[in-house]
Design a protein around this nucleic acid. Sequence first.
RNA 1: GGUGCGUUAGCGAAGUUGGUUAUCGUGCCUCCCUGUCACGGAGGAGAUCACGGGUUCGAGUCCCGUACGCACCGCCA
Length: 580
Amino acid sequence: MYRDHTCNELRKADEGKRVKLAGWVAKRRNLGSIVFIDLRDRYGITQITFDEAHADLVKDVRNEYVIEVDGTVALKQTPNPKLETGEIEVLADACKVLSAAKTTPMIIADETDALEDLRLKYRYLDIRRNPIKEKLLVRDKVATIVRDVLHKDDFVEVETPILSKSTPEGARDYLVPSRLYKGKFYALPQSPQQYKQLLMIGGMDRYFQIARCFRDEDLRADRQPEFTQIDIEMSFADEEDIFAEVEKVMRAVFKQIKGIDDLEFPRIKYVDAMDKYGSDKPDLRFDNAMVNVTELFRDSEFAVFKNCVADGGIIKSLTFHNAADKLSRKKFDELSEFVKIYKAKGVAYLKYENSEFSGSVNNALPSAEKEALKDFLKLENGDVVLLLADRKNIAETALGAVRKKLGEELGLIDKNRFCFEWITEFPMYEYSEEEGRWVSAHHPFTAPRDEDIDKLTSDQANCYSRAYDLVLNGYELLSGSVRIHDSVMQKKVFDALGLSEEQIKNKFGFFIEAFEYGAPPHCGVGIGIERLVMILTGTDNIKDVVAFPKTASAYCLMSDAPNVVDQDQLDFLSLEIKKD
RNA sequence: GGUGCGUUAGCGAAGUUGGUUAUCGUGCCUCCCUGUCACGGAGGAGAUCACGGGUUCGAGUCCCGUACGCACCGCCA
């Protein structure tokens, strides 16, 4: 036996007790003939004291050595309120080195000066630090709560294949070459989508899985190439059923982890979200909705606005109260540069202070137009109005990005709030310039809105679906949809996507066939567990909640994956590496 | 695929208009210290300034390219 207590277990009441602890040397403080060691394990830290008679025991012990210590619990002369075990120490009389350690390349403490790339290279050391360790513990807790809630509601956890079939129409797949079938490939699942729908056809009624998913696309601060989804599917259910179940899961998670039990789940249609917030995942922790002011400037004396409207564009406004003295000329210049990222030409602004206007378009706009704007937006002294004129989607997206940026910079976001919203009725299709055809906005098994069924193949641009997202604090937490369970309707969607009989058969053959043997109405979701844990733990970096994450270029700094393989391995797979 | 920022002892940073021996903090090593908990004090070691090329009498500093890291746009059914 290496230990009979953990490093966060002993308290005042244990005074005099003989104990055995084991862990890592977090810190060694040598005061001459007395030596203090902070012993660390997963649970916490306990101070071990080696007095004059025993100091020699740890003469050669250094930071991060793994040691086993015997001793007696004693009260500290001066307690340390920063530690849970701060009132006691263990007076050691024996110490055994279980493992020596080299000097670590980074300081292993809550506050480390190491940058992220070094922390990724030595991730196992980083995991010893509380900030990372605690996030992994929260993640474990979330998974436990989710399993608990869903099991109580009769959901069955079923594992689906990792070696699966390449799914066209979507993200790039990670491919795995087959040895037995020369020239053929498995694909790692982007999500268990088709399998879970087949489970519904298999009568599995209520399914869930904590499922690893893989997408070979470029990364972001909130996106990894492999990630985990709480995947749920329900039969004989529609939006109301799945929303209720997801809300139940979220309430349980936030109650047990955050002690919060007043969550709300408002619903916003996709078109309204884009109109008001310029995003399909708006952060509703602050209001500041955009307002369409196109009509006010249809006949504007300001040519830029007038021409924009004449060309079919729109003008969006965004107001910030009491911000006139907080936003400088320089900041607006910066914003005008910022919106160019989103292909907008720039952003204009007006300040209304002391009942007077100023700002970039103050001179360009006649008083009457400014007064009309003031009345329309009910402007008050101290207000700042940003105006962006452009094509509809550019104006919405660019000003929406400004909304998010200034919301953060002006401190409008209450970090302690958790604002959910369901975004509903996403477009059924998006036009792909690249492919020159309509593609599924969600996936081709998504059901259209009942009232749009006649638009499926005739008016793709105005056809909306029964797809939905759950957004939390500006993050897309989950996506889902009511699925098509009718072969005839499915055929129509494939037609709209321009897929031939042949292509349908090749790409989805087995899946389509299954629907001919009795498919129940069903719907489901996939909840991104990393994003949920990110928000619960207050980080904006997905790597913080993944044990062994990849870099922004999908590389593992610790293991150096991906790597070159032996010629033998390639030969088995009948693969040849093409020279550039 | 694109844009921006970054790369200087183990780690984190400074380094001015290009100019002598590259600075600071921390970590590491040695010594001193019986109540520390970011212990304290004294001393010491530790750098091909990411890589390749160029400009220059002279480059950590300026220019070009490459690699890597980060963020964003495209992408992510």
